[in-house]
Design a binder for these strands. Structure first.
Lengths: 205, 205
DNA sequence: ATCAAGTCTGAAACTTGTTCTAGATTAGCG
DNA sequence: CGCTAATCTAGAACAAGTTTCAGACTTGAT
């Protein structure tokens, strides 16, 4: 899990750490109000009490900023979920329940969700490392729900597909093209893949 | 399917139809070169021999333009696929083959794919109708591959999840976070959902 | 052919993400 | 303390999406 691969992450001083937090907070705040468009770099800088140039030093683009915001929120959610693990009988149920729980959390701040998810899927290669971190966090959450320590490659594939579905379903909901009920069905549908890969010996054909 | 819902689509004159085509062509051309960023509204207008204001009259935003470009390309692909239907034995195989074929077509113009897919997932509510059209086209392609005329609700759910996976996998590939092999695995994995929802005993002919 | 309504053009203006610069502040160090 | 390098600030400048506007051109009806 510990992988600070990026070339030398210089340790931040306390004031710098504080600045970084203020920026992320301002970002989430503005996003909660008006979604992706409401997160305007000048406004973030002002709300965080920081010069525009400084904001760009900390986060090299609006997309980077919002993806980092998502990392932040996901971490929060991960620890929340850990405290109250899902109670279903089989893995598929637990994963579906976990994702729907996460989904309901996002529903409470739909604008914030909009900003984060749009940034995530719009990110180009220059943001890959950060997006990857988000992806690993999501994977960790799903694996936690499955209760697996050593997933098989097959199971990892199922998890990947679940993640795909999760992201894409989120987008269709955010853009008003799918109802919450529809998202629930999609998630439950994709979670059936877990059953397919659960039985040891039920190898892939 | 027949839904000219949008308030009165006034029939275009011949010259207008020609302008529209020129614009879409210029858009695809520029996108093929440098992807999303290379599609600059001023350049599209110039390449299409049209004033900037006119471009915006035809397509109210860059996103609208690129989503329309995708519609165009998808329609093209759909008719191509119809000519040579996939040859697999069961529905899952045929769908996977079809999607991988589409995927290889996109690979040939990765920049174009980048522009279209980024626009598609970045689109907000104001583009919903157009994005929905793309979604229906994709669904039609998948259902064609399955060989289904009257899918059950369950099968439609599977198709939805397949679409989710398709879009999201495409994004991970475009942003360099997944290899082509990985995409193939993901598609094959999700296609196993089709087997789950196949009518028992009906091998589907 | 003529008029009115709608469309297209060219160009400027406005918005917001991003970059750049010069000077002030801070951090680490002797 | 006093120096140097790094960081931060304020603000201008630039880039590309979007809007606006006055005037020229089409179109359709009379």
């Amino acid at each position: 899990m510990t992988a600070d691969a990026r070339p030398a992450a210089p340790p931040l001083t306390e004031r710098q750490e504080a600045r970084r937090r203020r920026i992320l907070h301002a970002s989430a705040q503005l996003a909660s109000r008006g979604g992706f468009e409401a997160v305007q770099m000048r406004e973030v800088a002002e709300a965080a009490g920081v010069a525009l140039g400084t904001l760009y030093r900390y986060f090299p683009s609006k997309i980077h900023l919002l993806v980092a915001t998502m990392q932040d929120q996901l971490q929060h959610m991960h620890s929340t979920l850990r405290k109250r693990p899902p109670a279903g009988d089989d893995a598929a149920q637990r994963v579906a329940e976990t994702l729907m729980r996460a989904f309901r959390a996002l529903q409470r701040e739909p604008h914030l969700a909009d900003a984060m998810v749009r940034a995530l899927t719009f990110a180009d290669r220059s943001v890959s490392p950060e997006v990857d971190t988000v992806s690993r966090l999501t994977t960790a959450i799903i694996l936690d729900a499955m209760g697996l320590e050593h997933p098989t490659p097959e199971q990892l594939s199922a998890v990947r597909v679940i993640e795909h579905t999760w992201h894409s379903a989120l987008i269709t909901w955010l853009s008003g093209r799918a109802s919450i009920a529809q998202v629930k069905i999609d998630i439950e549908t994709v979670c059936r893949l877990i059953d397919l890969t659960a039985e040891p010996g039920a190898g892939r054909g």
